[in-house]
């Protein structure tokens, strides 16, 4: 069953309404978990949320297609252009939606909404990233061969709590449905024993929350002196991540960051993504064909990975704030393969 509720847009969405107006859209239909949470808060069970340019927010629960149509109806949108995220179930909308509503994908608009902060927001992100750095330390300082990874999560939990963070983690990929009490995702341990080994690099991604704001950091460490393959992957990941950050200058296209990363990692199996961090999670990646331009005030999650054939991968992440001077890392954790020996 689909239910819909309508109310006035909170002040936090003022900027979005301005953007809609400027782009000639009458409304924005949000269907991703991050988008929905951003508009209606973390407790929402709406599967589609409509934000109109004149200040109405309508959320509807139930099957996504039907919910999208219900949200459109509830907000009284019967004609005009509506911006949508990419993963919109258009087929179902055809059955339920008002006939003369034109749905147009506008991923840049959604990304900009989740990346561009109000002046008061960057300090909250910096504090959340600082909390991620506390978690980083709680792992890095205690790593040892043979360590049970559950001990490691316990260390992060204790340290992050002591530093004022919230227990409970956000879903870093925005796939929805995930919940738990871990603050760190660990990879690279021996899956048969859950223990750390000398040869496999340990990758850990931190996702603590501080007052509803997500911290974002990840690191990779090897518990020995890295050998050739791993050292190369580490060096490439560090250089390509640095190139990505250097390319995120105000006025440049954000995708220049992707291009810089690809150039520096050429010849290696490597991936990177930039995500918008507002909305309490870190789900929405910048599309490679995005035309968005970097501007001061944006806060982004940066995530990079380079495979080390036969040895796993090197994975790094940071929370960066774009300032007039460029991309400023906020967690301040090492963006390189850490060798512990």
């Amino acid at each position: 069953m689909t239910t819909a509720a309508t109310h006035h847009a909170p002040a936090a969405l003022d900027r979005l309404r301005g953007q809609l107006d400027k782009a000639g859209f009458g409304a924005l239909l949000l269907t991703s978990p991050t988008g929905r949470r951003h508009a209606l808060g973390p407790a929402t069970d709406a599967t589609a949320v409509l934000v109109t340019a004149d200040g109405t927010v309508a959320g509807a629960a139930g099957h996504p297609g039907a919910a999208a149509a219900a949200a459109l109806r509830a907000a009284g949108v019967t004609d005009g252009a509506v911006a949508t995220e990419d993963e919109l179930p258009c087929d179902l909308l055809g059955q339920h939606g008002p006939a003369d509503v034109r749905l147009r994908p506008a991923p840049d608009l959604v990304f900009a909404e989740l990346a561009c902060c109000e002046p008061t927001e960057p300090p909250a992100f910096a504090a959340a990233a600082g909390l991620a750095a506390v978690g980083y330390t709680a792992v890095m300082d205690h790593l040892r061969i043979g360590m049970d990874v559950r001990e490691l999560s316990g260390n992060v939990d204790r340290s992050v709590r002591r530093a004022g963070g919230l227990l409970g983690w956000y879903d870093p990929y925005g796939a929805g449905g995930a919940a738990g009490s871990d603050l760190v995702t660990v990879r690279g341990h021996d899956p048969s024993t859950a223990r750390l080994t000398e040869a496999s690099p340990v990758r850990y991604v931190l996702h603590p929350l501080l007052d509803g704001t997500a911290g974002y950091a990840a690191a990779t460490a090897v518990l020995s002196k890295a050998d050739g393959t791993l050292r190369t992957a580490g060096d490439v990941c560090a250089a390509a991540t640095a190139a990505l950050l250097a390319a995120l200058r105000p006025g440049a296209r954000l995708t220049d960051g992707y291009a810089a990363f690809a150039r520096a990692a050429a010849g290696h199996a490597a991936t990177c993504r930039l995500v918008g961090l507002r909305g309490g999670g870190a789900s929405l990646p910048l599309r490679p064909d995005s035309a968005l331009v970097a501007e001061p005030g944006m806060v982004l999650g940066v995530r990079t990975e380079v495979l080390a054939p036969g040895r796993g991968a090197v994975e790094l992440a940071e929370t960066v704030e774009l300032t007039a001077g460029g991309a400023e890392p906020r967690a301040g954790t090492p963006l390189r393969l850490v060798e512990l020996y």
């Binding site: 300082d141 205690h142 790593l143 040892r144 061969i145 460490a221 518990l223 020995s224 512990l340 020996y341």
Partner: peptide
């Protein structure tokens, strides 16, 4: 040395 690096003595 704040913590033994990776549980090793950290001779280097």
């Amino acid at each position: 040395i704040h913590w033994p690096p990776g549980g090793h003595p950290g001779v280097t």
